[in-house]
Design a protein around this nucleic acid. Structure first.
Lengths: 195, 195
DNA sequence: CGTCTCATGTAAGGAGTTACATGATTTA
DNA sequence: TAAATCATGTAACTCCTTACATGAGACG
């Protein structure tokens, strides 16, 4: 259900086509929520059916059309309601730690590769999120700039602050994962050399 | 697919019924991987069909039977292969941080409740995992004791060490989440009082 | 005129959730 | 003998993934 609200949040900035939205999901939003276009297009139609969006056929080139979706008052209300509703935490399901718990069954070489892959993955994420924070701080993030232009002056500070806070949390988590995997590498070495 | 390997890992200790396994998923394994019995029973049948397990009908009470599953050589091989295969990291999909990114749309009261719920959730997890580590260290964890009894002496140390390492990682992550949400509470306060 | 971008789907299947459903056995 | 535990499912549904599919417009 989160996909629906991620789409609503993006559409509060400006009307967009499914294609526009799917591009946003590849860049900015993708750092928090991923969705392929095969999921976005049907969901937009369902949201229009549910009255959260209106779709307008606008001309594109001489012989073609595209559908631009605009959030409705009901859509804004639904988004606000979701924002005020407590989140339900889903049950633990963590493939990385499941595998880590049985690392003695892996070859030491493979065990090291797991830890190194974990470090690499979270290092990359950490850099992407840091770059995002930099964009947010310097006012060079396109979506944030558009959003702030529509936001009353009194709310601009919090709008920016919460986005930075979000990415700081993701960076902190990535950092913790990196440190854990580094300890893992040391542990594998120590268990491997001294049997 | 991880469910399959979680089941295989449990069945390396001893043969079990679907019910036994579903109990394990409610206690020990559930701290890393959750699965309801409606998922476990069909998966066990598929695994038997695929030759990873053999199911044996054993009597239970005077008029009843139960199916006990035993891992096969092919099952052990499949588990080892999975352990030596790099993990594919799935795309970001994080409802907590998605919501955090738009916290300005929530009432300050609801925003605080989100952060507090995050703190509460991860505090509980942290305690459960700490209790698990205590069990692992003191030799009072049933599954680990049974596993160690079947493990050659030379491998016992790593078997225990990797499990402790796994839960330490989960605790570290929970701690990071708690600290982030605490910073969130302060941020909400500061944005709320000084507009 | 070819390639890249814009634009929008369908279809099959895997994984997981929730609800519904039943009945035997053990234990207090 | 009632309650808790053991035992095993089915069925409908949501969400997501992967693969397949098509075509117009813009740009060089």
């Amino acid at each position: 259900m989160s996909l629906r609200y991620a789409l609503l949040a993006l559409l509060t900035v400006e009307p967009m086509t499914g294609y526009d939205l799917s591009k946003r999901f590849e860049s900015s939003v993708a750092y928090v929520w991923h969705a392929p276009d095969s999921q976005i297009y049907p969901e937009l139609r369902r949201m229009e059916r549910d009255g959260l969006l209106t779709g307008e056929e606008i001309p594109w080139g001489p012989n073609s059309r595209k559908t631009q979706y605009r959030i409705t008052a009901a859509g804004i209300a639904a988004l606000r309601e979701w924002m005020n509703t407590p989140l339900e935490y889903s049950r633990e399901r963590d493939p990385v730690h499941l595998k880590a718990a049985y690392l003695e069954l892996a070859d030491p070489k493979a065990a090291r590769a797991h830890m190194q892959a974990h470090i690499d993955y979270h290092t990359l994420r950490r850099e992407q999120w840091a770059a995002m924070i930099n964009e947010l701080r310097t006012g060079t993030n396109v979506m944030l700039s558009k959003r702030l232009a529509k936001t009353p002056e009194s709310d601009r500070q919090r709008t920016t602050a919460y986005k930075i806070f979000t990415y700081e949390g993701l960076i902190a988590r990535a950092q913790t994962e990196i440190e854990w995997a580094q300890r893992g590498l040391k542990l594998i070495d120590s268990l491997d050399e001294a049997p």
